[in-house]
Design a protein around this nucleic acid. Structure first.
Length: 245
DNA sequence: GAGTGATCATCC
DNA sequence: GGATGATCACTC
């Protein structure tokens, strides 16, 4: 049993048997999806990958999204880079969350690309960000760098929607950052802006460019940006849904 | 290039 | 040691 190990009680609720049925069909409903995800709790990425015949990379340097893609695959998410939730019928987005053995997030969480143009008429209520975070299946993975990828363990997945208070925080940060973009100040935004949300580069490399407007309303090219959740926020979620000592 | 999946790696 | 800025792979 994994819970006899060094990990805090309840970070992992179930160390299931070594062999589980992994279906790659789309889950019929939210309960089934959650149960399927929680059946992964306590398993290593190596065990999960082996069951679906996927090779585990030595490190994630060249495959930064590997864990997310593996989880999508085994949970039956619709593949592809479509601008819709991972589980369209359920309206649920899947997010893997790297944490340490105490449940502390190790990375910020990418949410979506930030539009730098075409913001006329966009308000919080119809924003991509609000839509993306409306309902999320979080799958924490104990993913400390010193642990070989194959030996990293899935903790307890949970489904979340923003509370009224959390949505207010998100809306406030989104508004602040969006206001700056609209005012042509996108290049003045850095990772320190926003309390729980930040705007940072989201690009293949420094050569990537997308259109934006400067403060005079003139178009120019700049690095594409994305919205990210800061770790203090996702840590709240972990502590809201899991009991971590 | 834009959007999906994110983590790396350097700087403070 | 943690966070910001930079970067990787893939699809269309």
């Amino acid at each position: 049993m994994v819970n006899q190990s060094v990990y805090p009680i309840n970070l992992i609720i179930s160390a299931t048997q070594k062999t589980i049925m992994i279906s790659i069909s789309a889950p019929e409903n939210e309960q089934i999806l959650l149960k399927r995800a929680q059946a992964l709790s306590g398993l290593t990425l190596g065990e999960i990958a082996a069951q679906v015949g996927i090779k585990v990379p030595k490190n994630l340097t060249k495959e930064k999204g590997w864990i997310g893609l593996l989880l999508e695959h085994v949970l039956g998410a619709s593949a592809g880079s479509k601008p819709e939730p991972d589980f369209p019928e359920l309206g649920i987005e899947l997010k893997s969350l790297p944490i340490n053995h105490l449940g502390k997030p190790l990375e910020t969480t990418f949410v979506c690309v930030a539009p730098l143009i075409g913001l006329t008429g966009v308000v919080w209520q119809n924003s991509h960000l609000k839509n993306k975070l409306a309902r999320v299946l979080w799958v924490p993975v104990i993913s400390e760098r010193h642990i070989p990828v194959a030996e990293r363990i899935v903790a307890t997945p949970f489904i979340w929607s923003p509370s009224v208070e959390q949505e207010q925080q998100l809306a406030q940060d989104w508004q602040e950052l969006t206001d700056m973009i609209v005012l042509g100040k996108v290049e003045q935004i850095n990772g320190k802006h926003g309390d729980i949300l930040q705007l940072r580069p989201k690009a293949a490399n420094a050569s990537a460019k997308t259109k934006a407007f400067n403060h005079k309303g003139e178009p120019f090219l700049t690095l594409p940006r994305g919205f990210y959740l800061k770790t203090a926020f996702t840590q709240q979620l972990i502590h809201q849904h899991l009991i971590v000592e």
